[in-house]
Design a protein around this nucleic acid. Structure first.
Lengths: 253, 253
DNA sequence: AAGTGGTCTAGACCACCGG
DNA sequence: CGGTGGTCTAGACCACTTC
């Protein structure tokens, strides 16, 4: 007997804290409600502020909390589902898509993107910036890379930089027949640029969706879209045309 | 003149550190190489260890580094692409899929999953555990929820708990016609259970892929798969049968 | 036993937001 | 201006791996 040897694997404090807070969020708080500030919370749980913050960080990562400097910590609404790979087998900019063109410049794509395009490592390509807004909140920022050689009349566009030029470039793209698409999702952290557009701090976790658009047997365009990982759930619909109706209230009787 | 007001937006130290380290990784280190330990690195850069760790954490999140307690910090290989939404319009367990059944129990699914299934909130369903291995490394852990009512002969399975029973359940599933699939990807953190299977610490960032399988006009099964976010890039192929060959060496001449 | 990364502390100051 | 979360420090101890 002697030491009963419970707690042979002592749980880290921040992990236990996270569990306690999760349960509290589920039962005692409602969406949008403001939590006590970090110093008070830490004191209440008898831990250092840094330890409490470790728990809060994870909860924010999981989309349960939302923290804003100078304001406070609030209970986050459930993540919004954003369609990124749904039935729409269309080019970016097709009528009804969820993106808003911002501007269009010429820039050399990052090496990883240049590898996909049939472009030289330091060749400039049309670079369209777009942003995506849902329920009034910015959810994603995108850079679309389109080599001059993708569409015949791209070089003839005379619109100046800006949204107008972006729309003109996308319009040329739509003349092509879209043969396919390939997407990849990975975790990243927001660049200073993206962070600004997403209303987050630099380094915030983002889901990076890279899409290759195929036309005429080659990669005609590459899109790199960064979604806020805290607020977004990316959906890839694939139900071959079948109508599915989901009724959450239904239960076996 | 006076104060030239440079540095009006002083960059956080850890952010600058991250940049410096990223460049060093790109130029001076090769995959698998061991970095100096955290105490030495912190001293070398003249910062506290906690600050250095903040930079390392982000780099690990981005898949650039791999840290293992008791061992050290190494340069990570590029992320592996794992197909999760490719052409295979098949049930889980179909010949040639990348998963290995581990066992099968009866359990009540989490509320979020129960909502998808036509099941009561506290009804037990067949729960198959599977794991996915690539290049010898575990990359994902999955829980598959299948209500008794999905397939006619599910109740007749007499295999005991374990991989055999899991295979039997999947075999029944394949008898059904698969009508469609719907997937969602979001960021999460590894449960203690998943962490063990993925060879990571609890709380490690994971990509959670939820898949609904449709048959006979209803949701016949739901899969919740958690992928290691640090090492995985999830790919969703969608190139309607077109053969695309990618040659990274090619350049315009 | 020695060395690694992981956890934790108790403080400090800063950047930002609101009244 | 006061209050919030964000950054940073200089320590300490613990859990784990390796030798």
């Amino acid at each position: 007997m002697g030491t009963t040897q419970l707690e042979s694997v002592p749980e880290p404090k921040y992990w236990h804290l996270k569990t306690v807070l999760t349960e509290a969020l589920d039962s005692e708080f409602s969406v949008g409600e403001i939590l006590p500030n970090e110093r008070d919370l830490a004191a209440r749980f008898g831990v250092a502020r840094a330890t409490l913050r470790q728990a809060l960080e994870q909860l924010e990562l999981e989309g349960r909390l939302q923290r804003r400097r100078g304001v406070g910590t609030t209970v986050a609404p459930p993540r919004v589902g954003v369609a990124v790979g749904s039935e729409q087998h269309t080019w970016p900019g097709a009528p009804g898509d969820a993106w808003q063109p911002v501007d269009c410049t010429a820039a050399v794509p990052p090496a990883a993107v240049a590898g996909f395009l049939d472009a030289a490592q330091d060749e400039q390509v049309h670079t369209v910036r777009r942003s995506r807004v849902t329920h009034g909140q910015p959810v994603a920022a995108e850079l679309l890379y389109i080599p001059e050689s993708s569409a015949p009349d791209l070089s003839a566009i005379d619109a100046p930089s800006g949204a107008a030029r972006a729309r003109a470039v996308l319009r040329e793209l739509q003349r092509l027949g879209l043969e396919g698409r390939e997407q990849a999702v990975e975790l990243g952290s927001a660049s200073a640029e993206d962070a600004k557009e997403l209303d987050r701090l630099p380094g915030a976790p983002v889901l990076v969706v890279t899409t290759r658009f195929f036309a005429e047997g080659r990669t005609a365009a590459v899109s790199v879209a960064t979604y806020r990982a805290d607020t977004c759930r990316l959906t890839f619909g694939d139900s071959g045309g079948v109508e599915i109706h989901h009724d959450p209230e239904r239960r076996a009787s």
